[in-house]
Design a protein around this nucleic acid. Sequence first.
DNA 1: AGCACGATTAACT
DNA 2: GTTAATCGTGCTC
Length: 194
Amino acid sequence: MKNGTQLTRAFFAQDTLKVARNLLGARLVRLENGRRLSGVIIETEAYRGEEDLGCHCRAGRTKRTEIMYGLPGYSYIYFVYGMHWLLNFVTERDGFPGAVLIRAIIPDEGQGIIAVRRSERPRAEWTNGPAKLCQALGINGQQNGQDACAPNASIFVERGTEIPAERVSVAARVGLNTVPEPWKSIPWRFLAKV
DNA sequence: AGCACGATTAACT
DNA sequence: GTTAATCGTGCTC
């Protein structure tokens, strides 16, 4: 497969940790009114299974989490803190819940629009957080449940440059302040060194 | 029907 | 380092 190819359902159907790791270096693409916005993924987090007490699926199947139990490759976009949207891609086989949170990208296409949406802040602050990148790319609940592997998807991922192991670091997931161990400290956050 | 809290961010001190 | 902003979700009554 060549760079620029849309990632397939087979890619997202793999183990959540593997998907999170291998999304580093791939290109997140947002199509909006014919405009193309994109950036290279440099930070992700894995959320897998009902036993993962950091995952929304710890509550089991609910209206909100149902999407994570379905087919891999769908977008799971949810709202937190009364103001922020966060983007995930569903992973694992149909019936097993899992998702990868996209935490940071390096902005590439559509920088003019991104700058405006990010209130003309410094470039380094455009998309260096999960809610920031959603704001920058115009991602919100309207795209929740969309198939990112479909030909007409408005949010999808393209194959990019592979990040070698020596440029990947792992860490505990962010923001799980009240989540018990071992889930709070489990190293399921993946970062690509620039 | 009510309530506590969250996979965050920006603006403070 | 601390805190307000702000509301959908899931849990309890």
